[in-house]
Amino acid sequence: MGAAVATHWAARARRFEVNAATREPAWVKGSLITIALAFFGLFLLLPLVTVFAEAFRKGWQVYFAALVEPDALSAIALTLLVAAIAVPLNLVFGIAAAWAIAKFDFRGKQLLTTLIDLPFSVSPVIAGLIFVLLFGAQGWFGPWLIEHDVKIIFAVPGLVLATIFVTFPFVARELIPLMEAQGREEEEAAIVLGASGWQTFWRVTLPSIKWGLLYGVILCNARAMGEFGAVSVVSGHIRGRTNTLPLQVEILYNEYNFAAAFAVASLLALLALLTLVVKSLVEWRGRQPLNVGQESQGVSA
């Protein structure tokens, strides 16, 4: 697959480069590529490289020591736990929302779609704040929670809630356009052929959205594990108890323990790279058949 896609990419760009009407002079092309690559190097590549370079600056031993330290290990465990709760919940929500919005017509659909996007435009700090206002000691449910000895803020439930909030739209947002584009004919055909609702979903809908779903889950997971602002507000920064990986990075950094901070950050960077790899695979997979079609069109013209 890889090689075919690579040549295909080249072919697409070349289509513009051979056409006299869509081609720029070589100096324009060269300058634009240079500007883009300089921008890329300065703003994207350099920070990524820096994370790893700083993490290994004091050698492998310091690096690994920073990662196996008890506080770091408990931060890793907590991060995994929070993502393991938040991502499946948002996955189920995403599928339900996409099913309702993409496969049915109802009044207020546009508004609902907008509301689902809402958490994206809310500052993560505010995402944390709202849960403090609800469940904090002075919050609406604060007295009741204290009375029943339930801790949400400065405890794991608060971290989970804040994380669910900031990652709320990811899966739904990925699935809605995809399922809308696919229409409802295939599902209707399945129903006409006698399939039940669940059978239709499992055998017809799910196979055709699985790549988009995977992409949404991957992005959701990356944000869930990497969220900083929202969890920072609700965590209370209790070492070994309510510190996720990004918060651990902050603590280590503020203690001037740079090597350890970057070592922990390098885990997050690895997660980011993995996310990008999976995302690229999903995209190329999803794009490929489409492109082949475009190419054959181009030839027949």
Partner: peptide, 30 residues
């Protein structure tokens, strides 16, 4: 990315999303 072909383009294209994927704390200290 759309109009020109140059070596390494696929990697550059994939890394454009880095700020989406890289946790902000990591980006901040870097």
């Amino acid at each position: 990315l759309v109009r020109y072909h140059f070596p390494g383009k696929r990697i550059v294209d994939a890394l454009v999303d880095l700020p989406f994927a890289l946790p902000t704390a990591g980006a901040g200290i870097a």
